[in-house]
C-alpha cells in the first residue's frame, strides 16, 4: 500500500513539475514575442530598420501587409517604408494593445499574435494629421531557438471613439 501511495505521489509531483515547466516556458516565449512587438513599435516610430532586420525572417516569399499594400521582402519593407517615414512624418505614434499570443505545433515552434492597433501621425508635406485604429496579425516561427517574425498584416480605418453607453 505504501509503495502504491509513493508511486502515485511521485507521478503526481512529476506531472505538476512538467506542467509548471511548460507554463514557464510559455511565459518566457510570450515575453520574447511581446519584446519583439515592442521593438517593431520603436522601429516604426523612429524610422529605424534595425529591429526589423533583427527580428524578421528574411526569405523568398516574405510578405508584410499594411493598409492595402504589401512589402515583398525585408529590404523593401525597411528601405521603402520604415526608413523613409522618418523624413515624411513629423511624428508617428503607434500603439499595440490587447495583445494575444497563441502557440501551435508539436514543439510550440509556431506562434501567432493579434493586437488592437492605434496609429497617429502628421505628414510633413501636407500637414495632414491622421488617427486610425484597427488590427494587427503577426506570425512567428522559432528557428534555431530564436523567434522570427515571418508575416504581418495590419489594417485600420479612421479612429472613431466608442459611443458611451447612457443609462
Amino acid at each position: 500500500m505504501i509503495k502504491y501511495i509513493t508511486a502515485v505521489l511521485v507521478l503526481t509531483l512529476s506531472f505538476m513539475s512538467f506542467a509548471h515547466s511548460d507554463e514557464q516556458h510559455n511565459d518566457k516565449d510570450k515575453q520574447v514575442i511581446i519584446d519583439i512587438i515592442s521593438s517593431i513599435k520603436y522601429g516604426w516610430e523612429n524610422g529605424d530598420g534595425t529591429p526589423f532586420r533583427k527580428n524578421f525572417l528574411d526569405f523568398k516569399g516574405a510578405r508584410y501587409i499594411e493598409g492595402g499594400g504589401q512589402n515583398a521582402g525585408l529590404d523593401s519593407l525597411v528601405e521603402h517604408h520604415v526608413e523613409p517615414e522618418k523624413d515624411a512624418l513629423e511624428y508617428l505614434k503607434l500603439d499595440f494593445s490587447n495583445i494575444e499570443i497563441h502557440f501551435e505545433g508539436k514543439n510550440k515552434s509556431f506562434a501567432w499574435a493579434i493586437a488592437d492597433t492605434r496609429v497617429k501621425g502628421k505628414v510633413n508635406k501636407s500637414g495632414r494629421e491622421f488617427d486610425k485604429s484597427g488590427y494587427q496579425t503577426f506570425l512567428f516561427r522559432k528557428i534555431d531557438g530564436f523567434w522570427k517574425l515571418v508575416h504581418s498584416h495590419s489594417s485600420s480605418r479612421d479612429y472613431k471613439p466608442k459611443k458611451e453607453h447612457k443609462h
Partner: peptide, 13 residues
C-alpha cells in the same frame, strides 16, 4: 504605415 486606407465597403472584404 501612412499608406493605410479607409475601407469603404460594408465588407471591406
Amino acid at each position: 504605415m501612412i499608406k493605410i486606407k479607409i475601407p469603404m465597403l460594408i465588407i471591406s472584404l
